[in-house]
């Protein structure tokens, strides 16, 4: 079965593919993550305790402070980063961090991205076009 294509604003970073980790929650690297373990550490976060390493991370909006602008690069250097960030709404810090890290980022989709993708689905991400391909669970 061919993937469902979702269109966002053209983004930043390389084309990647991987397994989605999804929550209708927000995102800040400093506030929400344990960078040393690659896990969500904020107790109240919907993904608390879960690993984000190598995931296509799908969340609602960028929140919190400015540290993410540095931290995405350090997460990549430690091989403890997600493969891509898909957000309904990014803020400048997410864009700056993605540009600095060379991490894939797309936002401003025509649908609620956290409802259009479910955890475990295989996803292709093409920031240059802003298109995300969502495969049915279990595929490809």
């Amino acid at each position: 079965m061919s993937p469902t294509l979702l269109r966002g604003h053209p983004g930043i970073g390389p084309a990647v593919e991987g397994i989605a980790l999804v929550a209708a929650d927000n995102f800040s690297a400093r506030y929400d993550l344990d960078l040393t373990r690659g896990r969500f550490s904020r107790p109240t976060h919907a993904l608390a305790g879960q690993s984000y390493v190598d995931a296509i991370l799908v969340l609602n909006a960028a929140k919190g402070g400015v540290a993410t602008a540095w931290m995405l690069r350090e997460m990549k250097a430690r091989r403890l980063s997600p493969k891509a960030l898909l957000l309904n709404t990014a803020n400048p810090i997410m864009a700056q961090g993605a540009a600095f890290a060379g991490l894939a980022l797309i936002d401003r989709f025509s649908v609620d991205i956290t409802a259009a993708i479910t955890t475990g689905q295989f996803v292709t991400v093409d920031p240059a076009s802003g298109i995300v391909g969502v495969h049915p669970k279990g595929q490809p």
Binding site: H9, P10, G11, I12, R30, L35, V66, A67, A69, W70, M71, R73, E74, K76, A77, R78, A90, P92, A95, A99, L105
Partner: peptide, 26 residues
Amino acid sequence: FFDAETLVPVSQAHVMADTEALGESG
């Protein structure tokens, strides 16, 4: 990414660069 058409001159900068955020790579 944000569809800016131009750049704007800025008169001062304030840099957040604590090493917890920077890490070794920063």
